[in-house]
Amino acid sequence: MNKRWYMITLVGKDRPGIVAHVTHALYEGGCHLGETSMMRLGTSFTMMMMVQYAGTAKALQKVLQGEAESLDLHLHIDSIEGGLHHHHQPDVRISIYGADRPGIVAHATGALTEAGLDILDLTSDVGGTEDTPIYIVHIEGRANEGAVVLQSALDIIKKEGVETQLTPIDTLVG
């Protein structure tokens, strides 16, 4: 039977051992991991994993059901195309930060997309204190219209009261 690719999403309250238990269950179930993203967001732990598996999504669900229930994780599985070895290399890094308020990511990414940015990776954090939180966004992407156009977009975003910084990424190949 040909192996198929699935995207597994697991989310639950963070506790020690989630990664070890989940990946062990996958390994024992005959799964092969592709690219993954696993991180703590707030007090939750989130996992997104490309997994190659010979069976159906229903069978894969059974492989993880026990661990997901015992760790109190929400489990979701989608069938995907796979597609390893097709990395896009970012050529710009953008940082945006300021006093937290609704709409920072929506406004910034809207303007940057208009200016030709293809986002490859975005992470954001809430720092500061509970009384005066600050929002920090980190983006890596490809400037399809060039960095000058992106900088113009950031100059407009800046007028909304956030600090922005654009840094070209010149990847060294040695």
């Binding site: 990395h87 290399q89 970012p90 990424i169 010149d170 990847t171 060294l172 190949v173 040695g174």
Partner: peptide
């Protein structure tokens, strides 16, 4: 900085 290597493709 960002690095790649001819000995570590992709």
């Amino acid at each position: 900085g960002r690095e790649g290597c001819m000995s570590v493709p992709d």
